[in-house]
Amino acid sequence: MTRYASVIGIKPESIAEYKRLHAAVWPDVLKQLKASNISNYSIYLKEPENLLFSYFEYHGSDYEADMAAMAADPRTQDWWAVCKPLQSPLDTRNDGEWWAEMPEVFHMD
């Protein structure tokens, strides 16, 4: 199992809509997350900075292939098309990132 964390901004005027969407995530999107070996997935909101923090655990053996399969899923693409306009990617993110990945610096079991 590998843990992943990332961060992205959210437009202040989009917070209510983002919360509404994530209160009832589309079942096909949840199914694809599980098929891509993702579990224990959470998103947190920090206000007034308007940052979303994401955490999940990956239980597969080929992360790149599983992420590519998720990105190719039409229903997931539809979900991202709804969510992405609400988000504000960080200027400091790496090339190719939407959510900026965050390395783990401490963990206690």
Rank of each mutant, 00 (worst) to 15 (best):
A16M: 03
E49I: 14
G96V: 00
R3Y: 08
A69F: 01
N94H: 15
S36H: 04
F53V: 09
A68C: 12
W79H: 05
A35F: 11
E49R: 13
L21G: 02
R75E: 13
K19F: 12
E104C: 00
A16T: 10
A71W: 12
P12L: 02
L86N: 02
I38V: 10
V25R: 08
A16I: 05
H59K: 15
P27L: 09
G9C: 00
D78Y: 11
Y55D: 12
I10Y: 07
E97R: 02
F53A: 02
K31D: 14
A100E: 01
W79L: 08
M67F: 08
T92Y: 13
K11N: 14
P85Q: 07
M67T: 05
W80G: 10
L90N: 04
S42D: 15
Q87C: 09
I8C: 00
A68R: 06
N37E: 07
A24D: 12
R20K: 15
P85F: 00
K34D: 10
P12F: 00
Y18D: 03
R93V: 05
S61I: 09
W26P: 04
L51I: 06
F56I: 04
L86G: 04
V7T: 07
Y44P: 01
P74W: 05
P103Y: 07
R75T: 14
I43Y: 08
A65M: 06
K11V: 13
F56G: 06
A16H: 12
H107Q: 15
D28V: 10
N37K: 05
F53N: 01
S39L: 06
S42Y: 15
G9Y: 03
W99N: 08
L30P: 04
I10P: 03
N40S: 02
Q87V: 04
P103F: 09
E104N: 02
I10E: 04
S6E: 10
G60R: 08
L45E: 08
F56C: 05
M70C: 11
K19T: 00
R75N: 13
I43M: 01
V7S: 06
D95A: 15
N94L: 13
